[in-house]
């Protein structure tokens, strides 16, 4: 980007699982993934390359490196035996990019209505929200860094818009 106050780069393909279940199932899934159990709304827990993003009381988005997919599914199915749950592979439903830099939240706030101040949207906070007319999942991974998940057919729209906003922010009178 022109004035280097925010960088956008695509993230590599990943294993993405939509996981739903009650609290006990969530705990069992966290144990199977090697993640700490957490029921805090709109917060992500992550260890190594694995992360669990709270998207609803019973819904998590599980992220892991691409090559861990088979292993992940196996250990989850084993750990979840006896727990009512839903596990659906959505690895290719969406793609992800990272937005980094002091202007990252300004770029997002052009079309995302949330309060992205650090006090209001701290590191590790995550949520399903919108960017203009597209649904996104937003996860703050550092003070000046966001992980953005977007459905693949909406990605052109979101990225084109982000570039337009970046151009406009770098224009000086």
């Amino acid at each position: 980007m022109a004035d280097a106050t925010a960088w956008l780069h695509p993230l590599p393909g990943a294993t993405r699982l939509s996981f739903c279940g009650d609290e006990a199932a969530q705990d069992a899934a966290a144990a199977a993934l090697g993640l700490p159990s957490s029921a805090m709304p709109c917060r992500a827990v992550s260890v190594g390359g694995r992360a669990s993003l709270w998207l609803g009381p019973e819904e998590r988005l599980l992220l892991a490196p691409l090559n861990e997919r088979a292993q992940l599914l196996a250990s989850l199915e084993a750990g979840l035996a006896g727990h009512a749950h839903s596990l659906v592979d959505i690895s290719q439903r969406q793609l992800a990019f990272e937005l980094r830099g002091p202007n990252a939240s300004l770029l997002l706030n052009a079309q995302c209505p949330l309060d992205l101040a650090l006090e209001a949207f701290p590191v590790d906070m995550c949520t399903r929200t919108v960017y203009a007319k597209s649904e996104i999942v937003l996860w703050r991974t550092a003070a000046d860094r966001f992980h953005v998940e977007v459905w693949r057919s909406f990605s052109d729209y979101v990225l084109t818009l982000l570039h337009a906003v970046a151009r406009e922010l770098s224009a000086r009178p």
Binding site: A110, Q111, A132, K133, S134, R152, S153, F154, D156, Y157, V158, T160, L161, A164, V165
Partner: peptide, 15 residues
């Protein structure tokens, strides 16, 4: 605002 031309609505394309 940004809702104009090609960006008026998301244009979804298949693989």
């Amino acid at each position: 605002g940004y809702d104009r031309g090609q960006q008026f609505d998301p244009v979804r394309r298949t693989p």
